[in-house]
């Protein structure tokens, strides 16, 4: 008998439209979360406002140039909190490990988790360990949750509620490196590249910016769906259009070259240490200055602006001076990239 119900396909895990539909139809309808869906949930507990986030990591391979699954998990969780405007405090980590996995590898993973957490001023305070039979999971999967403190004047940042036409968009550095580094590390692709993942925690950088600037209207880390996904989501959330200047988007030469060969668009590739910031025009230069002094933002660039547009279009001024729309990516981009 063939199954009559729809089956989960790899496209459901891409982070694009199908993922969104799955989340809405299966989870939100049953759990009753409030939209818009942001990287962290905001919970009020007595006088304190907390940001709470959770994530799971299934990246293949577990070790890749620039990081490993453990560093990725800690940085990813910190970033989800940081871009909500929160100060990350505590992390939990659950491990699902395949029988036969090397304990030495596990130690390396745990070492880098501890290192990243300490660097970011965050504590890993609880966890869980499960082992499954060989073949029942691939090497190791990690699931992390994080809690941060959200100052009252930063609640709007995750929700984009103050974003207005004229606001400027900034990113902290070149896009696409994480995807290319992971692809390069997968033995089946047949090319070697020197590209390293940009995997890094961003809370020190975002903390500096938020402490010194008053007009930060939105922040979001550019992960699985890349810059394009975040831009399309932002346009929908703030009810405006966006004009992006392709020539201003930093892309490393090596990434550019590999994208040309493989037919990828760097703007929709995954990143693990990139943040999009929307700031009031007057404060744009100040934000850029702060970013360029920080190792996580030294090649920061202003890439475009919010424009009034009822259709919430994201328009790309192409590198040769033409125009086209940026559309939410669909289908499988690259599976198991984070």
């Amino acid at each position: 008998m063939e199954a009559k119900t729809e089956l989960v396909s790899m496209s459901h895990g891409s982070g694009g439209k199908l993922t969104g539909r799955l989340i809405r139809e299966v989870f939100i309808s049953r759990f009753g979360m409030a939209e818009p869906l942001t990287d962290s949930a905001v919970v009020d507990y007595e006088e304190q406002r907390l940001a709470f986030t959770t994530d799971s990591y299934v990246i293949d391979p577990v070790f890749f140039p620039g990081g490993n699954i453990g560093k990725l998990a800690v940085c990813g969780t910190i970033n989800d909190l940081a871009v909500s405007g929160a100060i990350p405090k505590y992390i939990s980590a659950a491990f699902i490990i395949e029988e036969g996995f090397h304990i030495d590898s596990l130690k390396l993973i745990a070492d880098s988790m501890a290192f990243e957490a300490e660097k970011a001023g965050v504590k890993i305070i609880t966890g869980d360990t499960k082992v499954v039979e060989k073949g029942k999971c691939d090497s190791i999967f990690i699931s992390t949750s994080g809690i941060g403190i959200l100052p009252a004047d930063r609640v709007h940042i995750g929700a984009a509620s103050r974003v207005k036409p004229g606001d400027k968009l900034i990113i902290n550095g070149p896009v696409g490196n994480h995807s290319i580094a992971v692809l390069g590390a997968r033995k089946d692709l047949g090319f070697v590249s020197a590209v390293e993942s940009d995997c890094a925690s961003l809370n020190i950088l975002t903390g500096k910016i938020l402490n010194e600037c008053r007009e930060i209207h939105f922040m979001r880390d550019l992960t699985r769906g890349g810059l394009v996904t975040v831009l399309c989501e932002l346009a929908g959330m703030c009810g405006n259009g966006i004009l992006i200047n392709e020539s201003c988007i930093p892309v490393d030469e090596a990434v550019k070259g590999i994208c040309e060969i493989l037919g990828f668009d760097p703007l929709s590739l995954a990143n693990e240490g990139k943040v999009l910031i929307v700031v009031k025009k007057d404060e744009c230069e100040k934000v850029l200055k702060i970013m360029r002094k920080d190792p996580a933002g030294f090649s920061a660039s202003e890439i475009g602006e919010i424009i009034a547009d009822k259709e919430n279009k994201v328009i790309l001024k192409t590198q040769i001076g033409g125009e086209r729309l940026l559309i939410m990516p669909t289908g499988i981009q690259l599976p198991r990239i984070c």
């Binding site: 668009d265 192409t318 040769i320 001076g321 033409g322 125009e323 086209r324």
Partner: peptide, 9 residues
């Protein structure tokens, strides 16, 4: 043509 927006030029 579409990626570079040539039709718009």
């Amino acid at each position: 043509i579409r990626r570079f927006g040539i039709q718009s030029m």
